[in-house]
Amino acid sequence: MTAVNAMLVIIVLSLLAYALLAGADFGGGGWDLLAGLGRDRKTAEDQRSLISASLGPVWEANHVWLIFVIVCVFAGFPAAFGDIAVSLELPLAFALLGIVLRGAAYVYRAYGQGAALPDRWWSRIFACASVLTPFMLGVSGAALATGRLGPRAGSAATSSVVSTPLTPFETPFALLAGLLAVVVTAFLAAVYLCFDAAQSPASAHMVEVFRRKAIGAAVASGVVALAMLPFFYRDAPVVAARFTDRSIPFAAVSALCGFGSLYVLWTKRYVLARATAAVAVAGVLIGWAVAQYPDLMTGVHTAQQAAAAPSSMDAMLVAMCCGMAVVLPSFFLLLRMFAKPVVEEHAAMH
């Protein structure tokens, strides 16, 4: 494997970690927003406390996966990074707004004691930002596949396509991809929360609530994914054709695990549900990444052409091997330590 491909694999795996870990944190925010609606509104405050307790110790570490992806793209593929960022400036700016507001609102609510705004307001900001961010990131990823993005004037890359700030939003495919990101993160969050709720008698009454939500979100994810397919072939023909050639096995695994998740949720096996849910999401993400290869920005930048000089690339790969040797074990330790969130304990920390 060449250094360029090794870098791509690292980027995709980090993106996957971000989707599975931070994605669930965003999904939790989404459920915070919906907690007061429908038949489960009686337990709304309990749900919010559990969501907050499950995020507390891990959300910042989960979030770093995104920073890591960004750094890898700009360090590994500098020629493409500027064009990607500028052509996606609108969705990325909104994603950033969501990231900043979500994080700030979370800690302000937890530690603020109402000094700046009432907790309820921070709660709303936290929840809305948690929905905004995955939507915008979903749109950004899909827009890269469409081949409609072009570099702006002044870029070194040449392309016949010229895009405006609104171009990423102009295809139904990209909008549906944003929606898919929202429902998939909600699905992951609900599945993880089923297990979390079952850990303590005090929160056990919410298991059923999140189980219903998980099943609903699983069905919604399937529907959105199916609805997306025809637009995928229409709006992103190049990547879609490669998807047919290369990614059918990944899509099949994803679909299988999607149905499997429904089954294990039905039979109330929540640890197994975490695994099937994660594999279902991984199937979609890896399927897309494989079909996207070798393009970074379809029609404008390929990985090979945008790669940094070999000396830089090698140095980064060395740094990554050393870095991961420290980070990965620590990360597992963190996840293990807080595998069982306890609501009362969480509240006492603030």
Binding site: V71, F74, A75, F77, A85, A309, M316
Partner: peptide, 22 residues
């Protein structure tokens, strides 16, 4: 860095990339 200084990043991203990775 990418949104506001794209030409800087595309030219010198490889030079400071290691520091940002670390």
């Amino acid at each position: 860095f990418g949104l506001l200084w794209p030409t800087f990043m595309s030219t010198y991203g490889g030079a400071i990339g290691l520091l940002f990775t670390l």
